[in-house]
Amino acid sequence: MLLAYTSLTLRAFASIGRSLSGRSTLRVHATFVQMVNVGVNSLPTVGLACLFMGLVLAMQSAGQLAQLGATERVADLVSFAMLREIGPLITAVVVIGRSGSSITAELGTMKVSEEIEALEVMAIDPVRYLVVPRLLAMIIMMPCLTIIGEALGLFGGWLLGVNSLSLDPLLYITRSLQAVDLKDLYTGLFKSLVFGFLIGSIACTYGMEVRDGAEGVGRNTTQSVVSCLLAMLGMDAILTAIFFFAT
């Protein structure tokens, strides 16, 4: 599978390269359709998940911080954790479950029903036709989703802080802004970009590699979700180490 993954990813980038150098065309319309699929349609779920995470973070930290007599620091903690870690992570988990699995299942079904073979026989490169739009859509939409998710997560923290911890609404916001700097935001977004690439490429590989009919589609979809999750969390550890630990 690793070999198939590498070869498909290289072929996808070669195809994007050919499009950029004008030797073939990029399927712009198809890419937008996929952006709606993986991005816009995931928005409600991502938003809700991040909102809940914001509430949970605020509740969990409130207890601890109250013991230290620093309840107002809830704002610092929520915004810090949300931008650096929780936002990109929760968004990726939702997208893996929703869109990663559906990409694998869709491509796998096309493989089983000989649609991909038919494309090849018509001299249409399935990588350019199917994989590139999905991969690009993932890479573009993950940071967009993440930033909206983070906003809702921060809002969740604020809701709890203001309503249950009776913190001052404006003070909460200023504290949040002071607690984080730009680096927290852009490292989080960079992570989500890398997650988007990983999810897109892994989901497409498992889809294109389906064998043995409907059973294979089911098996590969499960495998795809598991691999995406592990790859995403592993990459998260590596990037966190690079950005915040090693330096």
């Binding site: 079904t109 096309m110 029903s113 000989e114 649609e115 073979e117 038919a118």
Partner: peptide
């Protein structure tokens, strides 16, 4: 090629 089961894109 005309495929045995059509092989149309669904």
């Amino acid at each position: 090629m005309m495929h045995q089961f059509g092989a149309l894109l669904n």
